[in-house]
Every structure is written in C-alpha cells, then in structure tokens.
C-alpha cells in the first residue's frame, strides 16, 4: 500500500501540493492563454495557430482608441492615486488616533466597495455627478475631473485601510521623542510619521493605481468623448470584432501593471505591507 511505503504525513503533503498546483493553473491559465493568443498570426482566432507574429502589437499601437485609452487610463490612475493618498492619509490619521462616536460605523462604511457591486457603485456615482451638475450648472459627468473623482472615491477605502494598518503598527514614542527634541507637529508628521508608515503609503498607492487602471464597471458611466479609458476602449472594440489585437492590448495592460508592481517591489518589499 502507498500509505505503508511513504513516511507519515507524505500523503497529506502530496494532496496539498497537487491542490496548490491546480489552483495556480486555474489562476494563471487564462492569463497565459491571452498572452499566447496575442502572438497568433491569423485574424480569426483558431487553435492550433497558423503561425506567430508580433504584428498585432503594432496594429494596436496604430489605433488611436487604444493609444488614447492607455494615456487616459495612466493619467486617471495617477491622479486618482494622488487624490486618494492626499485625502486618505489625513482620514486614516484621524480614524486611527481619535476616539469619537461613530468611528466603528465609518470603518464599516469603508468596507463598502467590497460589498457593493461595481456597476451599482458606478451608477450611484453617475447619478451623484448629474445631481451636482444640476445644482451647480458645472458639468461633472463625462469629464476628466468626474472620472478622476470617481476613481479616487473607489480607491480611497483602500488607502485609508492600508494607511490605518500602518499607523496602528507604528511606534508612537518616536513621534513624542521628536516633539520633545523640538519638532513642531508638521515636522513630526513629515520627518517621523510619514517615513514610519511608508509601507502603508506604498501599498495604498499601488492599490489605488491598479484599481483605477483596470476599472471597467464604474467607468462605464463616467467616461465621455475624449475620456475613454483603456478597459472601455477594449469593451467597445470587442463589440464589433474579435481578433488578436485585443489580446495584444490585454497583454500590454498586464505588462503595465506587472511593471508597476515590480518597480514598487524594487523600492519597497511589497510582502512587508500585507
């Protein structure tokens, strides 16, 4: 019998190992397929491929909708990241350090984006912007500003949560020591607090960027002429045609996010933030 031949526990380890490999294949399989398809030669996606080519990448780059979408997505993601950090850090400071009524409630609300379906959140944001437009007479919906605002709102809970976690874990005596040594509150914040929570800042910033960069459902309501993001451009293209161009664009998107992650990891070990 197998169980007699193997050392104790080996059967269990074998089962776990197999499960892990299967799970990994399940996760990586579709991604690998997309990358693979992007190199297919034929316009009609067929297995096995007729041959391999890089021309779809060139074709995608030639299409203004994708190039524009990429630029828009990058700008929106950067702006949303900056905005969510600018608003999220003070919010996290207050939440982590001040006892007040309703603190628990606010912290639960901040879990909202995990519970509310993206399409619902997008619709709500859209209606909010329209109402704001009616009230003020300024156009918000379908502008770059509205898009950035929407994306920052989606990213904000992540920055608040991650920065709060970093704040809770930091040594507050360092701040007190700095104050006694003559540092005013602002100096304490920039010289002691911020460096101490940079794990949270980096993780929060990264999350914001990625969430904004890949967002589709909320953006559906928020984009307008000239503010089409890359995921929207992909969806629009897919309505009329399916060819390896789309796989090339998707591969480029995966590469962009991977690049951001790797670059961040270079400066800062991401595993330390989670």
């Amino acid at each position: 019998m197998l169980s007699r031949l193997l050392p104790p526990g080996a059967g269990f380890r074998l089962a776990m190992g197999t499960l892990a490999v299967l799970a990994f294949l399940l996760l990586a399989g579709p991604l690998a397929t997309v990358v693979w398809v992007s190199f297919f030669q034929g316009k009609i996606i067929a297995f096995p491929p007729e041959g391999y080519t890089l021309s779809w990448y060139a074709a995608a780059w030639e299409m203004p909708r994708f190039r524009g979408g990429l630029a828009t997505s990058l700008w929106v993601a950067l702006a949303a990241t900056a905005a969510s950090l600018a608003a999220g850090v003070p919010a996290a400071l207050y939440l982590a350090r001040t006892e007040f009524r309703g603190r628990e409630a606010i912290q639960s609300v901040l879990l909202g984006p995990l519970i509310v379906p993206g399409i619902v959140a997008g619709l709500a944001l859209y209606m909010f912007l329209i109402e704001a437009e009616i009230l003020t007479g300024v156009q918000f919906a379908q502008t770059m500003g509205g898009l950035v605002l929407g994306h920052s709102l989606i990213a904000l809970p992540w920055t608040v949560r991650l920065v709060t976690a970093a704040l809770v874990g930091m040594d507050r005596q360092a701040e007190e020591a700095a104050a006694v040594m003559g540092a005013r509150p602002l100096a304490v914040f920039f010289l002691v607090t911020l460096p101490a929570i940079r794990s949270g800042l980096v993780a929060g910033g990264l999350f914001s960027f990625v969430i904004s960069f890949v967002d589709l459902e909320k953006s559906l309501f928020l984009v307008g002429p000239g503010t089409t993001t890359l995921p929207i451009a992909i969806i629009n293209y897919l309505e009329w045609s399916v060819d390896p161009t789309i796989a090339a664009v998707a591969t480029a998107q995966i590469a962009a996010i991977s690049a951001v992650m790797i670059a961040t990891d270079r400066v800062f070990k991401l595993t330390r933030a989670f």
């Binding site: 040594d171 005596q173 360092a174 007190e176 020591a177 010289l191 002691v192 460096p195 101490a196």
Partner: peptide, 9 residues
C-alpha cells in the same frame, strides 16, 4: 524612553 524610540529610517 525605555523602548529607545529611535527613528528607524
């Protein structure tokens, strides 16, 4: 302080 409270960075 007891815990030193040095600035780690």
């Amino acid at each position: 302080f007891q815990g030193y409270a040095l600035f780690p960075n």
